[in-house]
Write a protein that binds this DNA or RNA. Sequence first.
DNA 1: CGCGGGTATGGAACCGGTTCCTTTTCCGGC
DNA 2: GCCGGAAAAGGAACCGGTTCCATACCCGCG
Lengths: 334, 334
Amino acid sequence: MSTIADVASRAGVSKATASRALSGRGYVSEATRQLVEDAARDLSYVAHSSATSLATGRTQTVGVVMPPVDRWFFAELLAGIQEALFTLDYDLALYGVPEGSQTRERLFESVLPGRRFDGIIAVGIQPSARELERLQRTGRPLVSVGPYSEGSSAVSIDDTAAARIATEHLIELGHTDIAFVGGSTDAAELSFGDARRLDGYHGALQAAGLAAHARVAGAAPTMPGGYTAAAGLLGDRRRRPTAIVGVCDEAAIGAIIAARRLGIAVPTELSVVGIDDHEHADMFALTTIGQSPREQGHEAVRLLTQRMDHPDAPLERIDAASALVVRNSTAPPR
Amino acid sequence: MSTIADVASRAGVSKATASRALSGRGYVSEATRQLVEDAARDLSYVAHSSATSLATGRTQTVGVVMPPVDRWFFAELLAGIQEALFTLDYDLALYGVPEGSQTRERLFESVLPGRRFDGIIAVGIQPSARELERLQRTGRPLVSVGPYSEGSSAVSIDDTAAARIATEHLIELGHTDIAFVGGSTDAAELSFGDARRLDGYHGALQAAGLAAHARVAGAAPTMPGGYTAAAGLLGDRRRRPTAIVGVCDEAAIGAIIAARRLGIAVPTELSVVGIDDHEHADMFALTTIGQSPREQGHEAVRLLTQRMDHPDAPLERIDAASALVVRNSTAPPR
DNA sequence: CGCGGGTATGGAACCGGTTCCTTTTCCGGC
DNA sequence: GCCGGAAAAGGAACCGGTTCCATACCCGCG
């Protein structure tokens, strides 16, 4: 591996000049620049990133902290972040949020402060006060993706509004017996965003004077979760709801599959609406609230670079667009 | 941010001693070590990773190159790699393989050689000869996950065998009209692993003298892909196969959903077998060939650290375990 | 002709660690 | 009492870049 000293001596100039020629900063004559560039190409020189970042204080790396990517939303979001960082020539250091409390502690106490990032993107986690303090101690900008934004810029859809709109859509169709699939009686088990979606559901019912009809079936925000919960809801013929709001499309799709298995026709006998506009939503003709996690990833990176360039600019919160996508899983009740 | 010089002067020792005390290498008296550790804690000192890696030549970072994580297999695999690296205190730098050829070129020509990694894990890509040469020029060990292994250690299941076993299972049940969902007539469109699975299917038919019955329905290796392809296969009542092999569980599940929609009972009227043991397989009672991508991730990291410790040890290929998991989507034909 | 300012370049310091080498001290064994 | 070797600690070099500062040159202008 060749160093800049090798390049310099091959081009017959000093290290300083070689550095200037390659970085384009400072005075270098055109002839010399050519000389240096040729030498660099001949030696297939690439700068040692550790040396560069030690000298400049910038690492060209962004740390991303996120839950496991086995949910569609996170996978898409990560792809969006990745794309945006790649075009900006930033590296992406990925950290999962571990389950165990002591490993989570290690992440925030030692791993993250030890590495040098030019910025951090935190996804779908609610950092504790101390964890937040740890993140901010790095002195680097922090952007979160999700419905909270203490001490950071943030991007997400308005989860409360999304669930409210989904529920209102059913109410407008004439439904009164609307169940929510994917909630939990135990608030601690719910992610922040999912809790807001549950709030939105309750809010819409309340506004329509249907608060007494609220029914929440606890379920993991996954297809099997929605399937199992919906199977329970729909099993009892007499107490069967006429419509279901899924906490996310995965859960809603699980509900549709459960309905089909029980011989309940969607949408004539049962309406189902989801939130996300998952890539599978189309296959099930699922009416849903669309959001684009990939674009949210782009936005997060944009917010981050903005804060890296202007550290003193005020924090910003972006409410990503979300709109009802009507397909064929909702209809008036019989 | 405090440096080791700050720690040293606070502890009343030299930089050299402070470094030895904190790293545990070389002679330091117990009393001095205590002094240094206390000073470090007081200043909440954390070593500057760029400085460390410049001095030692090790970055504590592993580069991971993989396709988008929107398929279950890749998401699980990534989680496995992540877990293993975290416990070893390595960072994970994630790179997507971009679609465009010129951005892919930028990745291999400039991004990967420029960053310093202690090792690289390449997933599900077939590097060209030049790309491989670029990766090896970094002088760091390379481990691939997938059914190829030129110039690297590798881990994967035996895709050919997996598809063969899945197909043989159907043959043993008495099926003769077995279709494959998720192949493509255009080999270039298939991933390396999927192509091998198609080979395994053909091989099993041939061995059973059923080569003439081979039928391949082109489909993306996804649930909608399997759904569409299966809908096509099953639409014509007279030419309907009695069994389907899915290139992966997602495709197989798509096929099951298509069958249900058409009123075809699984497994009595149609047997379906998949490959992967996806987390949704249980929900559909899908018989499949199990594999654990998460463990493959662990294995990949193990192979990598092994090669980092013993660069001259011979390359190794690990054939991960895979076995038939019989649920309730397969039965003898009527 | 002399001076000032922009251009071009090199020497050296610096970023923050690690490690080689040297010096000093201490201890046990002969 | 002396010697050898292990233990402890410090000085300085080094990793490979970037950048400050000094120097030299060239040009145009007064």
